[in-house]
Computed example of a mutant assay.
Amino acid sequence: MYRFLLTPRWLGILALTLAASVVMVMLGNWQLSRYQDRSAINERIDAAARLDPVPLTDVLTPPATAGTVGPAPHPDAAWTRVTVTGRYDSANVVLVRSRTVESRVGFEIVVPLVLADGTAVLVDRGWVPPAPGGAAAQPELPPTPEGEVTVVGRMHLSESMAGSVSQRDGRIETRRIGVPELAAELPHPTYGAYLLVDEQTPAADPAFTPIPIRHENNWQNGGYVVQWWLFAGMALVGYGYVARREAHTRSGKRRPRGDRLEVAAVSPPVAGSRD
Rank of each mutant, 00 (worst) to 15 (best):
V128F: 00
W79E: 09
P53V: 08
D275P: 08
S273N: 05
G178M: 06
R104Q: 14
P210Q: 09
T17D: 12
G252I: 08
P268Y: 02
E148S: 12
P256M: 06
P256W: 08
T150E: 07
T190R: 07
V123H: 00
G147F: 02
L95W: 03
A184Y: 08
G178Q: 08
D275L: 11
G272F: 03
Q200K: 06
L195W: 01
G272Q: 04
S158F: 03
D198V: 11
R154V: 08
H156Q: 14
S158K: 06
S98C: 08
V84Q: 05
A131C: 04
E199G: 08
V84T: 12
A20K: 13
Q227I: 10
N218C: 10
S251G: 09
G153D: 00
N42H: 11
G178Y: 07
T150I: 04
S21A: 15
N217L: 12
E199R: 15
P142C: 03
D124L: 01
F231R: 05
R274F: 09
P256A: 04
I45W: 11
V266S: 14
A265W: 06
D124Y: 00
L182V: 01
G233F: 13
G238L: 04
L6W: 13
G238V: 00
V263E: 13
V111I: 15
A247R: 11
G240Y: 03
G223Y: 03
W79K: 04
S164K: 15
F107M: 02
P268N: 06
V242I: 15
R154W: 10
L141W: 00
Y194K: 04
S39Q: 14
T61V: 15
V225A: 08
E43G: 13
P210W: 05
T7M: 03
I213L: 15
D124N: 13
Y224L: 02
L18H: 10
T61K: 11
R244C: 09
T119H: 11
A136C: 10
E108Y: 01
P130V: 09
N218V: 14
T174R: 02
S251N: 11
D169N: 12
E185D: 09
P189S: 00
L14C: 14
V151Q: 01
A47V: 01
A137Q: 14
G233C: 10
W79N: 10
N217Q: 12
G272I: 05
G28H: 02
E43F: 09
V25C: 02
P268K: 14
A264S: 15
V242G: 02
A247S: 08
R176W: 09
I109E: 01
L122Q: 02
A265L: 13
A203H: 02
L60C: 03
V93P: 03
M24G: 07
S98T: 12
Q31A: 02
G238S: 07
T201E: 13
L115H: 06
I41R: 15
L113E: 07
L157R: 09
T85A: 12
A193Y: 01
D169L: 08
G153I: 00
T57E: 13
P269I: 05
W79A: 06
E159R: 03
Y239Q: 09
E262M: 11
L113R: 07
G86S: 05
N218Q: 14
A207S: 10
R44E: 02
V111A: 07
Y241L: 15
V23H: 08
F208L: 00
R44M: 04
H248T: 13
A204V: 10
A72I: 06
S103I: 09
I109P: 00
V110I: 12
A116F: 04
V197Q: 04
